[in-house]
Amino acid sequence: MKIRDLLPFNWKKERADEKETHLPQRPRENASSDFDRFFENPFVEFGLMRSNLSRSLSPKVNVSETRKEIRIEAELPGMNEKDIDVTIENGYLKIRGEKTHETKDEKAHCVECSYGFFERTLPLPDYAQADKAKAKYKKGVLTLSVPKTKQKETGKRIPVSVA
C-alpha cells in the first residue's frame, strides 16, 4: 500500500466525490428540510467549518518518501523546541504544540502570523518503524524521519505442485 492512500487529505477528496454521487438529494420542500438535512448528513456542515478554521494556526506539512525512510516536514516558524510535542501511537503520528507571543506594552499594527494551539495527525503506513523515528527542529522547520522496515512479501505463498 502506498502512503498516499493512507493520508487523510486524500481520503477527503474521494469522500467529497462520493458525497455528490451517492447521497440522494431530496427536493427542498420548506425551510425546515435544511434543518433536517443537517442531522442526516452533519459532516457536510463540519466540512465547511473546518475550512473556516484553517485560518488559525495549522502547520503546513510536506511528506516525501525515499527508499529507506519517510520524511515529514512541517513549517513551524518561531517556535520553541520545548513547545513542540511529537508522538507516534497506534500507527498515527501526532504533531502538536502552542505558539505564543509575549505581549508587553505593545500596540499591534499588523498581525499576519498565527498564534495558538495546533495539532496535526498523520497516519503512518505499516512498514514505518515508529521506535526509530527521529525529529529535529531547525530554521523554523520540523523534520521527522521515520525509517522503513525492509519490505517483506506480505501474504502467504502457496506452492504450486504438479498434479
Binding site: 518561531g78 506594552d105 505593545e106 500596540k107 499591534a108 499594527h109 499588523c110 498581525v111 502570523c113
Partner: peptide
C-alpha cells in the same frame, strides 16, 4: 509579518 509598536520602538517579526 507582525508589526508591534512600543513606546521606544517598532518591532517586526517576519516569518
Amino acid at each position: 509579518v507582525d508589526i508591534w509598536e512600543t513606546q521606544d520602538s517598532y518591532n517586526l517579526d517576519v516569518e
